[in-house]
Structure formats: structure tokens, C-alpha cells
Design a protein around this nucleic acid. Structure first.
Lengths: 202, 202
DNA sequence: ACATCATTGTTGTCATTGACAACTTCAAAC
DNA sequence: GTTTGAAGTTGTCAATGACAACAATGATGT
């Protein structure tokens, strides 16, 4: 009889990351309400209590997902920055790149983005998440400061300006992900143009 | 013996709205995860299945909360519009009023706002919610069109401009509600100013 | 008046879930 | 080699959402 050949070794070896990616798939496909630790365990071929070794809580799993999301979003924004650096130093083009990256992430990871900004994380994790948001704003801040140095951006407290710009990006991404907006690209261009030139006639 | 005096009549009479307001309080105080139909029933002094008569689903309750939230938000924005009409017709002041109303709502009803924009509603309700968002954008749209008529706003597709402005308001409100931003008022002023005048030096 | 009947509430039950406790397997460190 | 601790397992519990079957109430039509 061959039944004593364990399909998988006793120790899964990679359970934590398997749980995370499985959770993210479920989140994207069936929403946050469909997330169940026990179901994740079943999918991973592991007992119902195994996830408890890696995540104290269901909330801990969600926290980890959110943090991971911020890391990837940040990487995406920084990638947009780096690819820009090789071309010219046009602040508007740079902002457009950032906006595209942010919106792209929002469209591809709508449910995850919700989770990232959900107001229900453990207090210490909330600090980390706040820091992650701070990092993102810092990227915008860099652009603003650079733009101010080259004279492409008006003077004024760069932090305030960065906050305003980040707000716009976030709001646009959030809206675009929610409603079924067809011409995201065009709208996005218009938003960046508007941000740069303002609403008042010159 | 007095025990046959029913504390409450068999028919609660107002259960639906009691459930809704109780749910909203719980939502605000303990987050969406703490919402339990059974607990709401207990608080209302009613059996555990009674809520089922008014809400097919837990999701149906959440949908109702979200719709109600949009109605109140819209009323608040329209109130801002009416109080403005009595003073001058300065588009910037009007936008500032709208922004204050939106942010005020976001700060007072953070968890509810999350729910309103959550991507997990029943499909037909989603349509109603999308319509609600459309109504809100329409309010902004009015302002933009008026501003264009008085020459205070640049020309261009008003819908696109309105979408951009609404995005900014929403993003700012969402950010302000999440992070612990101290000087919301100042930042808000700066955002509206920035929207009006743009980022480029003139 | 009064029978009917839809509404709203009730009890009972079920499968699922998150959390925890107690036990086992394995591998690495000493 | 043994000890020790991380990772996985079974077993159990209370809470929950959903549903079915039944009861009370009040409105409607004649």
C-alpha cells in the first residue's frame, strides 16, 4: 500500500505566502466578505487551524495584505519615477506618469485598494500603514520640490501642495475604480492638465 | 401577576429605522466588522430573525445604510449650495463651501463613507449608488457650468472638469478622514486655491 | 361585524466560521 | 543525541447568517 506516501511533507514550507496570494485572489474575485481563513486553509491543503500559526487573527491577514499592497503600489510609483528620469525633466509628464501608475494600480487591484485604506486595522499596523501613505506622498513631494527648483511649479509650502496633488490622484483613482468610467485615459490627462494650469482663465 | 403585560407591543412598529440607526452607530463606533444582525436585533429588543423581515440579507442592510448616507451627503452639499446662493456668486467661495461640506461629512461619518464607496453591493443597488454618485457630480457640474457662464472658469467640457474637481474633493476628504491630518481647514483652503489657480506659475 | 390575509414577529435549526487549547511532527541548535 | 521551538493537527466552543415553520396583529373587503 502506498498510502503512507504523504502527498505533501508535514511542513508546508511556504504556507504564509501561499495564504497571502490565495487571499488576494479571493479578495479580487469574490470580495472581502468571501474571505475565510478556513477556506484558505482548505485551498492550501492544510488543516483549518494552520493559518493561525502565521496570522494571529483574520485581521492580521488583512493587515498583511494591505501592507503588501502598499509596498507594491509604492514600487510601481517609484518605477514610474525611474523610467521618467531617463527622459526629460518635464514636471507635467512626470505627474502624468505618477497618475497613470496610481490609477493603473487602482484599476487592477480595486478591492485591495479598499482594504489598504480601510479604517479598521490594528493600531500598530495602522501606524505602518500611515507611514506607507506618508512614503507615497513623499514621492509626490519630491516631484513638487523638483518642479519648484526648475521653476515649473509655483512657490509655496511643498508639503501642502503635495498633499493636494496626492489627494487628487487618489480621488481620481478611487472614482475611476468604482464607477464604470470608460475613457479613463482622457479624463486622466484632463485632470493633470487641470491641476497644472488651474481652473481660472489666464 | 403582571407578567402578561407585554413590555412592548408584538409589533415593534418602527423596527426598520431602529435597526438602521443602531447599525450606523455600531458602524461608527466599532467598525463594519462588528455589525451583527443578531446583535442589532438584541439591541432592538427583538428576536434574532426579526431583522430578516426588513432586510433580506446582511448585505441589504449595508446597502440601505449606504444609500441613506448618499442621501444625507447630497442634502448637505445642496444645503451648501443654497446658503451660498444668498451671498455673492464667487465660484471659488462656492467650491470652498462644497469642499467643506464634503470633508465635514467625511470626518463625521468616516466608516459610513467607506461603506458608501465599497465595491460589494448588490448589482441593482450598485446602480442606485452609481446614480447617487452621479447626482453628486451633477452638483459640482452645476457650479462649473455657472462659473463658465460668468467667465470665472476656463472653457472646456464641463463634465470632464467637474469629474476632475469631484475627484479632488473626494480624494482630499478620503485622505483627511484616514490620516490624522491636523490642519484640515488650511489644507482645504490650499487645495481649492490650487485647483483654481493651478500649479504652474503665471 | 367579521373572515381573510399580508405583514411582522417568533422559535428552532443548520452549516460555517473564528478562536482557542492540547497534542504531534519535524528540524535545527546545542 | 537530546532538547526545544516552530509549524501543523484534531477537537471543541460560541457566535453568526440564513432559512423554515409557525403565531400574532392589524388592515381590507364585503
Amino acid at each position: 500500500m502506498l498510502e503512507d506516501m504523504p502527498d505533501r511533507p508535514y511542513h508546508h514550507g511556504d504556507l504564509r505566502s501561499v495564504l497571502l496570494s490565495s487571499a488576494e485572489r479571493t479578495l479580487a474575485e469574490r470580495g472581502p466578505g468571501a474571505l475565510s481563513l478556513r477556506e484558505l486553509a482548505r485551498e492550501a491543503g492544510v488543516s483549518h487551524a494552520a493559518p493561525g500559526r502565521h496570522f494571529k487573527d483574520k485581521q492580521a491577514l488583512l493587515d498583511a495584505l494591505a501592507l503588501d499592497g502598499f509596498q507594491r503600489l509604492r514600487a510601481s510609483l517609484e518605477h514610474a519615477k525611474e523610467t521618467r528620469d531617463r527622459s526629460e525633466t518635464d514636471t507635467r509628464a512626470y505627474l502624468l506618469g505618477l497618475a497613470r501608475a496610481y490609477v493603473g494600480f487602482a484599476l487592477s487591484n480595486a478591492a485591495l485598494l479598499d482594504l489598504m485604506y480601510a479604517r479598521k486595522h490594528d493600531s500598530d499596523v495602522s501606524d505602518q500603514l500611515a507611514a506607507a501613505v506618508g512614503d507615497m506622498i513623499a514621492i509626490v513631494l519630491n516631484t513638487i520640490s523638483e518642479g519648484q527648483r526648475t521653476g515649473e511649479i509655483i512657490e509655496g509650502d511643498p508639503m501642502t501642495i503635495a498633499f493636494a496633488v496626492a489627494s487628487t490622484l487618489h480621488g481620481f483613482a478611487s472614482f475611476s475604480a468604482n464607477e464604470t468610467v470608460e475613457d479613463v485615459e482622457e479624463n486622466l490627462d484632463a485632470v493633470v492638465r487641470l491641476l497644472m494650469t488651474g481652473l481660472e482663465p489666464r
